[in-house]
Amino acid sequence: MDAFFASVEQRDDPALRGKPVAVGYPAARGVVAAASYEARRFNVRSALPSVTALRRCPDLIFVPPRFEVYRAVSQQIHAIFAEYTDLIQPLSLDEAYLDVTANRQAIATAWLTAKAIRARIIEETGLTASAGISYNKFLAKLASDHRKPDGQFAVTPDMGAAWVETLPVSRFHGVGPVTAEKMKRLGIETGADLRAKSMTFLSEHFGSSADWYHAIARGIDDRPINPNRERKSSGSETTFDRDLTDTAEIEAGVLRMAEDVWAWCEKRQEFGRTVTVKVKFRDFQQLTRSRTMPALVVTGAALKEASLHLIRSIYPVPKGIRLVGVTVSRFEVRSDDGEAELSLPLAGMVA
């Protein structure tokens, strides 16, 4: 989807159309969750601190996020996908891989299938989507950004490897900013540069990721579409308006995050054994405390209790805290007769 959260807001409020919009809060510690294309002209993008966004675009309009609306629209879009294929692998609310090989709608090409899906999306939601069409996930992902917004691009088998060579590695899915900077220091700035490096060189500098980088530099990606990919964790975090040292305020923030996570677990009926509390201090130093329970965490009260025990393990706080987060992971299927609620006190916490 194109600037999904911001586009939903512009769709629902005509006064926002054609204006630079950021979904988020303009607070000192706020960040941009999504930016309209009008805002992106000022280099305002997701994850940018709100104060920086306003400095770049003084006329920027902030609107608070409405995740329940975004989820509802996402469900509409996925229902459209399901008319064309059963092989759908969601990446997020606004993005997914589709394998249309089975050609359920008897459309002549994948190109025309993508056009049909995009037309249905705009007809039913009033929103635009972009598509990448190719013979593997890596290339389709790259192609999906190539004609944004409201466009599509195909990478055919005879052009895949050569096309990858022309692109900056910073655009590659799976190459984050830190890795891209490391590659730049090693003289790797394009796909061609990456392809020129031997497996020995890549293994020396990138360890277990060497095979992946060696393959994608040649346009190779054998990963299948996995419609049943399991969710590995559910988490929520918040950045405070000011650095906190008061334990009551810190714990109140942790409890709010635990409530958010539990709401997701309860709705999905997915439960995990591992609880993690994340803390980011005022100097951006990060710390985590985790505990794997002997039984699934199956009540909100149990999750809150575990989260409080974990946050209390860092007391007294050495410096102000700017962010806290709570995550549940190691999901397992709950037995028919349920499992015993976790038993405290906790021991063996791991940093």
Score class of each variant (00 low, 15 high):
R185C: 08
G219Q: 04
T299A: 02
P65A: 05
L310K: 02
S335V: 10
A6D: 13
T179E: 11
P49V: 00
N226P: 04
E251C: 06
W262R: 08
I77Y: 04
A210E: 12
L344A: 08
K141P: 00
W262A: 09
L346D: 04
A3N: 06
V23P: 00
A79S: 15
D150I: 06
V44S: 01
T245E: 05
T101E: 13
K304C: 11
A108F: 09
A217N: 00
L244N: 04
S170K: 09
D59H: 06
E339I: 01
D193H: 15
G325I: 01
Y213K: 04
D150H: 04
A82E: 12
I133A: 11
G24Y: 07
L167R: 05
R71I: 11
P64D: 03
A340I: 10
D243M: 01
A162N: 05
A110I: 03
R56A: 05
R334G: 06
E124Q: 13
P177E: 09
I61R: 04
K182C: 05
N228D: 13
D243N: 14
D336K: 11
S170L: 04
P168E: 09
Q105N: 10
R120E: 14
V73C: 00
S46N: 06
D211P: 09
F81D: 07
F138D: 07
M349H: 03
V63R: 07
D246N: 13
L296R: 05
A131S: 09
G151Q: 09
G160N: 02
I216Y: 07
M349N: 01
R273G: 03
R171H: 12
L342H: 08
M159R: 15
G126W: 11
R218V: 12
I225K: 02
L167W: 09
R256Q: 13
L287Q: 00
P14I: 10
D337Y: 02
E305C: 03
A258F: 05
R223H: 13
V317N: 03
I88V: 15
A351Y: 04
L346K: 02
A143D: 12
R17K: 11
R195T: 06
Q76C: 14
A106I: 10
E181H: 03
T85Y: 07
A302R: 08
R11L: 13
V175L: 10
A131H: 11
P149N: 12
R218S: 13
T128G: 03
P149Q: 08
K148L: 06
A215N: 15
Y37I: 00
E339K: 01
Y135L: 10
S130P: 09
A161Q: 12
L296A: 06
E332G: 11
D246Q: 02
T113I: 15
T85L: 10
R322N: 06
I250E: 02
A263S: 14
G272E: 10
A295H: 04
L244Y: 07
Y213F: 13
